[in-house]
Design a protein around this nucleic acid. Sequence first.
DNA 1: CGGTATCCCTAAAGATACTG
DNA 2: CAGTATCTTTAGGGATACCG
Lengths: 109, 109
Amino acid sequence: MLTKEELPVCPVATTVDLIGNKWKLLIMRELLKGTKRFNELHKAIDGISQKVLTENLKKMEADGIIVRKAYPVVPPKVEYSLSELGDSLRPIIDAMSDWGTNYIKENLM
Amino acid sequence: MLTKEELPVCPVATTVDLIGNKWKLLIMRELLKGTKRFNELHKAIDGISQKVLTENLKKMEADGIIVRKAYPVVPPKVEYSLSELGDSLRPIIDAMSDWGTNYIKENLM
DNA sequence: CGGTATCCCTAAAGATACTG
DNA sequence: CAGTATCTTTAGGGATACCG
């Protein structure tokens, strides 16, 4: 969680601190499609380990970007979804997706 | 430089591979303002070391995102600017900047 | 199923000194 | 000024085992 003291008061740096790494961006991409269970995320994000996924989900939950909902059932069921704040990041991920799509088209086909 | 073999054929992941880390995003932010000399970047990007700046600039140049121009003068003068490809990332950085601006306004003031 | 808890390892980053 | 070179440190991440 960012506090007023340690937050760099710069718009880009602020955003970077919240989602500016590979795994968080890929988690965002999945959750923008809708609510997902832990294992769905694990399978959808290529190369991520259970540990790293858990760690990033915790950070993002602490930052208020995602919401974790655990159902008291056996076997356990946990769902992750975007908070309102998280969903407001949609334009950024969309922009990255659009750019990547175009890049692939231009450079790799 | 990305090759066809190692490139994840996913739009978001492609973009993430090229600029999805803290330092590259902050370098992009500076170069979107215009051409900058090495020392200007060093001073503008808080906390970055000379070594890390050099390394990231080299990677970004290899990826075709930025252009390095060295003038044969003493003392040396080197200017960095965005390539056309790099400039096409502007909407993404702008989106991050806009989001960060709003976040700061909503949550820290 | 959805995690913890360990241990380990390496790539990334920091510190410092030097140079064309 | 714009780097390189070298060394050291740290943190991110992989592997494995276990648990409610």
